[in-house]
Design a protein around this nucleic acid. Structure first.
Length: 114
RNA sequence: GGAGAAGGGUGAAUGAUCGCGGGGCGUUUUUCGCAACGAGGAAAGUCCGGGCUUCACAGGGCAGGAUGCCGGAUAACGUCCGGCGGAGGCGACUCCCGGGAAAGUGCAACAGAGAUAUACCGCCGCCGGCGGCUUCGGGCCGCGGGCGGUAAGGGUGAAAAGGCGGUGCAAGAGACCACCGGCCGGCCGGCAACGGGCGGCGCUAUGCAAACCCCAUCCGAAGCAAGCUCAAACAGGAGGCAUAAGGCGGCCCGUCUGCCUCCGGGUAGAGUGCUUGAGCCGUCCAGCGACGGGCGGUCUAGACAGAUGAUCAUUCACGACAGAACCCGGCUUACAGCCCUUCUCCGCUU
RNA sequence: GGCUCCAUGGUCAAGUGGUUAAGACAUCGCCCUUUCACGGCGGUAACUCGGGUUCGAAUCCCGAUGGAGUCA
């Protein structure tokens, strides 16, 4: 799975993309200029959210829920920002929130029930 | 059985499916496949010490910083071990930044007479004065003054020139005496810190050095974003080719632009440093112990936006603090519970 | 990952071991004004936390917590 790495790539999504927020997560979506085979994901967890273990676990949960349904996501650039309330939440809660935001941004393929 | 003291260990387990990291093997252009391995006791805070690397350096000193009872351990330490002294506890045991205040400087608010020095109220002696009483004797009482002796008592304070009891004295005072404390000098035990006991000195030296400072010992500086190697881009130098073309020039030489080769600097980037190490496990020997030595076995994360997760099933005490980033030795701080060993005191039973 | 700093009322801040911790803005009450503002008077409110040194600590020492800066 390809991920966003550079600060410039993140900044581009923040400035040009659209944002969709919820209590736990914030999703930024940007349609890339070139056509790409699959979407790219960037994850941002602030130091305010918690200590290293908490932040790392959130990163894994977001990454896993995106990876398992990767084929359904449109080939765009995504940045997911975890908010403070997301600390300590279970996989099911993170996954549900992420798919909800995906539907609102019309990034998920049709036929998805969530 | 209850109440404690000291030390150590552990930090949910098993299976299935999908997924991640580096290395190995097979295939080898990539890809793909296989079986193993893959976070901690604190990985944390960055408070000390070392290895390693680069820079600096004849030697020594100053400045600056750190440490501070004694002996030992160690690569080193501000760490550890064993003692000593002091404090606490019936005890097991625990706690202590524990050198020097007769080298010097400084500070000690307020209160108090006085803060390292003193004499306010007192107490006592001597000499005058005034008033009263009078047995008329400077005899008695009271008030006030001067000169001197004292530091017992009073009160202030965190702290007032050893404490307490006696002798002594006009009143007092280590002035003298016993006990306790202190200082000095031998002796004995101990490597030493120190302890024990003997003799002497009547006793002068308040506290603060986590105030400046003095003494002893130690320390060159920076840190893996250290450093080393390769190297697109882009500066530079040397040589050669073409002199076909252009600029300078009347023309030649020369010079700039062109192409090639070499040298060499170096950004992006890549590699290396990067995990075999003061390593871990077992056992024996020496030592009270920290630790040291011998023998045997073993290889156990190495990323570079940064790898351990998700789902399902079963069980239980329903899972704390928390994620490696060059590597070690410590310290400090966080931590749900569970387990083990040794010891102390109290109660009961035999 | 390394290094260097800071912390005093709600906010900005002074305070080099000794009264009840200075001041400004804000806030509350009263006065002034027909009312508001300005002005005047008065009040509430703080040494990040835990130990230690000292007779005495915001200040000195040790540890913790939170925050900031810097090295690409």
């Amino acid at each position: 799975m390809e991920t966003l790495k550079k600060t410039a790539e993140f900044a581009e999504v923040y400035e040009k993309g659209k944002a969709y927020g919820s209590k736990l997560l914030v999703l930024y979506v940007l349609n890339p200029e070139k056509d790409r085979e699959e979407g790219r994901l960037g994850i941002s967890v602030s130091k305010k959210v918690g200590n290293s273990v908490v932040r790392h676990r959130l990163r894994r949960l977001i990454k896993e829920s995106f990876r398992l349904q990767k084929s359904k996501w449109a080939a765009r650039d995504y940045v997911v920002v975890a908010r403070k309330e997301a600390a300590g939440k279970s996989y099911a809660e993170i996954e549900e929130t992420l798919f909800c935001l995906g539907n609102r941004s019309n990034s998920l393929a049709k036929g998805e029930n969530r």
